[in-house]
Amino acid sequence: MRIQLVLVVILVTKLASSATSKKPKGVVGRCGLDDEGKAGLIASPNFPHANYPPDSVCNYTVTVAENSVIKFEFLYMDMEDGPTQKLSGCYADYVVITEDDNEESTMVGNQRFCGYDTPFNPVLTKGNKAYIWFRSDDTIEKEGFVIRWKAVQAPRETFACDFESRNGYCSGWRQLEPRSTIRWKVNRGQTRSSRRHWVTGPWYDHTKNNIGGSYVFAEATGMRQGDVTTLISPYFSMMKTERYCLSFWYHMYGSGIGTFAIYEVQTDGAQDPRFPLRGINIFLEAGEKGKSWQEGKLTLNRRAVPMRFIFEATRGNSYKGDIAIDDITITEDECQEPK
């Protein structure tokens, strides 16, 4: 009887210490806060003395100087459910960060945050104001979260993107609204549709080819046939040489795969009639392409003005239609055939 009791105590202790990192000292949580300045902390209600309440609806805002952006770091996290990194979506309790006063708008980091054993990378806003939304359901309350925010200089936009630098797209890349009905999601490992059996999406990313590497994918589960997701690049100047090579890797495995297309656009509004909002189609693939990552290379001519590129996935006829992309670059000179 004594042995059984000791085992129970050990297991409970292990569970209680499973949250990411140790509790920061001197932090007291509250439900709701309007903060401004250069740096600060946000913590869930009742932290650190008790679990957050059920059915919490807490809204926070952070504002920094106009020439700065906001960096968010997740110092402590112990919440119900799991994030996209755990093949879930924080459907019970979660934190969402947006730059509009609307919880349903584009999420900073492109995901909800929750769980207890997922170390999140820092995420950055594009502007100087952010809205933080904390929600909990009516079951399973935990210790909560602590987020540190800080005003920082906006990072330099970069075209080359391997989706490894932080939880979100590379600096300057963004979801194109309002054209997108679904989103490119940052992911590691298999997609949610392949939890039990590999039916769609990649096994790993292309960059690292392991569970630690990230890529983005357009999830077909829960979406309708014909739904579209679009990712637009920052501007890139193609005025230095006569030829450029746009290189990328894409993954189209599954019996329900739709289409993957790339468009070249001059601006968001596209004043030049040769480059409408949708842009000029420069690449198109449809249907299943196997379980391996496919390399795409496009030779582009010199342009008189900076250009952007839209990467667009269209949902096919079933949930077995996840489309993924990774490792996007542009180099000077025309493309060379793989050796």
Score class of each variant (00 low, 15 high):
residue 158 T to P: 02
residue 44 S to D: 00
residue 108 V to N: 08
residue 68 S to F: 13
residue 95 V to Y: 01
residue 85 Q to V: 06
residue 28 V to E: 13
residue 67 N to L: 08
residue 65 A to T: 10
residue 106 T to A: 15
residue 78 D to N: 09
residue 65 A to I: 03
residue 37 G to E: 09
residue 116 Y to E: 12
residue 113 F to A: 03
residue 61 T to R: 13
residue 101 D to H: 11
residue 101 D to W: 08
residue 117 D to N: 15
residue 58 C to H: 03
residue 86 K to T: 11
residue 74 F to G: 00
residue 58 C to L: 06
residue 45 P to Y: 00
residue 116 Y to K: 15
residue 48 P to I: 04
residue 142 K to F: 10
residue 119 P to N: 12
residue 120 F to Q: 08
residue 48 P to S: 05
residue 70 I to Y: 06
residue 29 G to V: 02
residue 29 G to K: 04
residue 46 N to A: 07
residue 28 V to W: 07
residue 157 E to D: 14
residue 39 A to W: 08
residue 142 K to V: 00
residue 146 V to I: 08
residue 40 G to V: 06
residue 152 V to W: 08
residue 77 M to T: 07
residue 117 D to R: 11
residue 40 G to W: 12
residue 57 V to N: 15
residue 31 C to P: 03
residue 34 D to R: 15
residue 60 Y to W: 06
residue 118 T to P: 02
residue 35 D to F: 11
residue 143 E to D: 10
residue 22 K to Y: 10
residue 59 N to I: 13
residue 114 C to L: 10
residue 126 K to N: 13
residue 141 E to D: 10
residue 107 M to H: 13
residue 141 E to H: 11
residue 93 D to L: 05
residue 83 P to L: 07
residue 76 Y to T: 01
residue 115 G to N: 03
residue 47 F to E: 02
residue 152 V to N: 06
residue 104 E to H: 09
residue 139 T to F: 15
residue 100 D to S: 14
residue 153 Q to E: 14
residue 110 N to C: 09
residue 64 V to K: 08
residue 66 E to C: 05
residue 154 A to N: 06
residue 33 L to C: 14
residue 111 Q to K: 15
residue 145 F to M: 04
residue 85 Q to H: 14
residue 118 T to A: 08
residue 83 P to M: 08
residue 60 Y to V: 05
residue 157 E to M: 13
residue 155 P to W: 08
residue 114 C to H: 11
residue 52 Y to Q: 02
residue 130 A to T: 00
residue 135 R to H: 10
residue 124 L to I: 01
residue 100 D to G: 05
residue 40 G to N: 09
residue 45 P to F: 00
residue 47 F to T: 01
residue 43 A to D: 00
residue 73 E to V: 12
residue 39 A to T: 13
residue 127 G to R: 08
residue 125 T to F: 05
residue 65 A to H: 11
residue 74 F to H: 00
residue 28 V to C: 09
residue 112 R to S: 01
residue 148 R to G: 05
residue 25 K to S: 12
residue 148 R to A: 07
residue 73 E to H: 08
residue 116 Y to F: 14
residue 111 Q to L: 11
residue 142 K to S: 06
residue 96 V to N: 06
residue 51 N to Y: 04
residue 109 G to D: 04
residue 104 E to L: 13
residue 26 G to H: 07
residue 52 Y to G: 01
residue 63 T to A: 14
residue 51 N to K: 04
residue 103 E to T: 01
residue 121 N to G: 02
residue 57 V to Y: 11
residue 62 V to S: 02
residue 22 K to V: 11
residue 62 V to C: 01
residue 54 P to W: 09
residue 58 C to A: 08
residue 136 S to R: 03
residue 156 R to T: 15
residue 74 F to M: 02
residue 143 E to R: 12
residue 71 K to S: 12
residue 84 T to Q: 11
residue 25 K to V: 10
residue 98 T to E: 09
residue 72 F to E: 03
residue 111 Q to T: 13
residue 62 V to F: 01
residue 110 N to D: 10
residue 154 A to S: 12
residue 43 A to Q: 00
residue 139 T to H: 12
residue 153 Q to F: 07
residue 69 V to G: 01
residue 30 R to C: 07
residue 87 L to S: 10
residue 72 F to I: 02
residue 124 L to T: 00
residue 125 T to Q: 06
